[in-house]
């Protein structure tokens, strides 16, 4: 139901972010997640960041 794509935040301005997913760049809304900054990875769905991707903690 929900095609999502991991992407890296390149720039941020006024709650909007430009993200890069393997060379595909797009402006998305980043206003629903707190404390995002360039270099972070987010899960993108329908033009908004729905989650910040964190590194796995185990091993």
């Amino acid at each position: 139901m929900c095609v999502g794509l991991p992407a890296k935040i390149l720039t941020m301005k006024d709650g909007m972010a430009v993200v890069d997913a393997h060379g595909a760049k797009r402006e998305i809304s980043a206003e629903l997640i707190e404390d995002l900054e360039p270099g972070d990875y987010v899960m993108v769905h329908a033009g908004i960041a729905i989650a910040k991707i964190t590194e796995e903690e185990d091993d």
């Binding site: 139901m1 929900c2 809304s29 329908a46 033009g47 908004i48 729905i50």
Partner: peptide
């Protein structure tokens, strides 16, 4: 249309 994943985008 959509579930909880998509609804926030509509609200935005």
């Amino acid at each position: 249309v959509g579930f909880e994943t998509t609804t926030p985008a509509s609200c935005l």
